[in-house]
């Protein structure tokens, strides 16, 4: 028994030591990019491109660590202390919350061009091949026999864009009548059978589990789903109007100052605005800001009338409290006795 105890102890110790050894060769510098769900593929390619560029320019090896999840969850991790050098999230409000916690400057959005959003996107519909329910615009989503898949706007950044796009459409349609717009989104959400917490969860539900007739999705997510899972299964439908989604990026001041990584973090985010970065964004179906790159990929991105959150809803902070706060418009949709 003693022998056995000893060998067990040795085994455990051995395992502990083996695991304690660093997984990868030590890099000169590391960055942690805390991002949201649909950017996984983009940042795999972009991180490679940036590492090469940084190596060529400074001789330093940079390793970028990634964390992905729902935008709100990711911002929560940063607030609670995950040491993210940069955040690349789904909407400005989530970064505002990080700034409010004191981890970065409150005016972060002015630090980079285009509201600190190096690429944009919009919300489109993904439908089953041949569009059996004949869904062509937002108005079709409230038909009684249409099942709509969207994530939960209270936890998913993408879902908030979905919600606001639908609301904005209804507002236009009703000539600015708030009650009518509210009624429209209420009817729309009554057609939602599953409310996942993140954009990826919804895509899985729609694509893999075969639930629903239409998925409200980021444009890039919809294209990716079609690309990954076969163009013979899904069609993309572009509505008459949609929202201009600006996923912003920022540096977490507290972290880069402590770790001394500001220069490389700055270079990392700026690389997103460079022609290479913009090219990669476009290839992953994010709409580039650079005119030249946008021209080159013009056939990739369908023309659609886009409105911004500032012109329709007076910015994120207003929209957040009004629509997604406690007791806000979204909560009222799910209030009992609706």
């Amino acid at each position: 028994m003693t022998l056995r105890t000893r060998s067990l102890a040795a085994l455990l110790l051995g395992a502990a030591l083996a695991c304690g050894a660093p997984a990868a060769a030590r890099a000169d510098v590391t960055l942690l990019n805390v991002s949201y769900d649909p950017t996984r593929e983009l940042y795999v390619a972009f991180n490679r491109s940036f590492a090469e560029k940084w190596k060529a320019e400074t001789g330093e090896t940079v390793t970028i660590r990634q964390s992905h999840g729902g935008s709100g969850k990711q911002a929560r991790s940063v607030i609670d202390g995950i040491d993210a050098d940069v955040v690349t999230l789904a909407l400005a409000y989530d970064i505002d919350e990080i700034a409010a916690s004191g981890r970065m400057a409150k005016d972060w959005q002015a630090a980079r061009p285009h509201n600190s959003a190096p690429y944009t996107s919009t919300i489109v519909f993904l439908v089953r091949k041949g569009n059996p329910k004949r869904i062509t615009d937002w108005g079709d989503l409230v038909k009684p026999d249409v099942r709509v898949i969207t994530p939960n706007p209270r936890t998913s950044g993408g879902a908030r864009w979905n919600f606001l796009a639908a609301y904005g459409y209804a507002l236009d349609k009703a000539g600015g009548d708030e009650a009518a717009a509210r009624d429209f989104v209420t009817r729309l959400f009554r057609n939602v059978p599953v409310l996942d917490t993140g954009a990826r969860g919804s895509t899985i539900t729609f694509v893999q589990r075969g639930i629903g007739d239409v998925l409200l999705a980021w444009e890039n997510e919809a294209f990716l789903a079609v690309e990954e899972l076969g163009p013979d299964k899904f069609d993309i439908v572009v509505p008459s109007v949609s929202i201009l989604a600006e996923p912003p990026v920022a540096i977490v001041d507290q972290v880069v100052d402590k770790r001394g990584t500001r220069p490389v973090a700055e270079a990392y985010l700026n690389h997103l605005y460079s022609p290479e970065g913009q090219e990669l964004a476009a290839r992953h179906y994010y709409r580039p800001r650079l005119e030249a790159v946008a021209q080159r990929h013009a056939d990739r991105f369908p023309k659609v009338t886009l409105f911004t959150i500032d012109e329709k809803f007076g910015g994120w902070t207003n929209a957040q409290t009004r629509f997604f706060g406690d007791g806000g418009v979204f909560d009222q949709i799910y209030a009992p006795g609706r």
Binding site: K73, R76, N152, R154, T155, P193, V194, L195, T197, Y334
Partner: peptide, 18 residues
């Protein structure tokens, strides 16, 4: 995970946190 229908308490805790 529909509010009021199929949302369990542990999930609601996570959602509140997020």
């Amino acid at each position: 995970n529909l509010p009021m229908v199929s949302e369990i308490v542990p999930l609601l805790i996570v959602i509140r946190l997020e």
